[in-house]
């Protein structure tokens, strides 16, 4: 799931606006310490749905980490609301949903609420960092429809299942057409990989 990265790669979260939400104060403190270690300065901390809603209406947020249990609601409620809030750019912000007691139905519920990623607790700092790096490389499009609003739920770009017609307008057919131009010769292929000096 995570793209390959080196531990010596750098991540700069010092100017990122991060919203951390968890209904349990101690859980929120642990989350805050983790992101402080990552270099995040003064994240917006929320415990209730109302605080979360207020925070995303105040300023642009670059990353949201929300626990499935808020003090007065569920994290899913906030994500669903956010995705349909039309608060540009926050309604498109990457959202990591952290779940404690996790059943498959809760993972699906988080996904269908519009979470970019669902992380099961206990989420070690390395796991959370891997997810952040994955989101840095996330190129999924955003889907807005009556039944769903959020990042494209199809993470893999492998096309439609074999034997089925794709539903995307840009899905390609599995049938490969006949070549329209002659194949490249081996020396032409080699030339594509050979560095050559050019006059600029």
């Amino acid at each position: 799931m995570s793209p390959p990265f080196s531990k010596s790669d750098r991540v700069n979260l010092s100017t990122a606006e991060v919203l951390l939400a968890c209904g349990d104060l101690q859980g929120l403190n642990i989350m805050s310490e983790m992101f402080a270690g990552f270099g995040v300065h003064t994240p917006r901390r929320c415990q209730t749905l109302a605080e979360c809603k207020a925070a995303v209406q105040e300023r642009a947020i670059n990353l949201i980490v929300v626990d499935s249990a808020l003090a007065d609601a569920e994290g899913y409620d906030f994500i669903s609301w956010l995705r349909r809030s039309e608060l540009d750019p926050n309604s498109f912000a990457p959202v990591i949903l952290a779940t404690g007691h996790t059943k498959p139905s809760q993972v699906f519920r988080g996904r269908d609420a519009g979470a970019s990623f669902v992380v099961a607790k206990p989420a070690a700092p390395m796991v959370m960092m891997q997810r952040i790096i994955w989101l840095m490389n996330d190129q999924r499009k955003f889907v807005s429809s009556p039944g769903y609003c959020g990042p494209d739920r199809r993470v893999k770009a492998l096309g439609p299942p074999v034997g089925m017609k794709g539903r995307r307008h840009d899905d390609l057919s599995v049938e490969v057409g006949l070549a329209k131009t002659p194949n490249l010769e081996q020396n032409e292929i080699d030339a594509l990989f050979s560095p050559k000096a050019v006059a600029l």
Binding site: N12, P94, S144
Partner: peptide
Amino acid sequence: VFAVENKLAQITREPGGRTIENAVRAA
């Protein structure tokens, strides 16, 4: 279905910051 700007990617790739190893250890 539309593309959205990945602002997180832009910010986190700015010069500075911490190595992943140091960030995880600090956390």
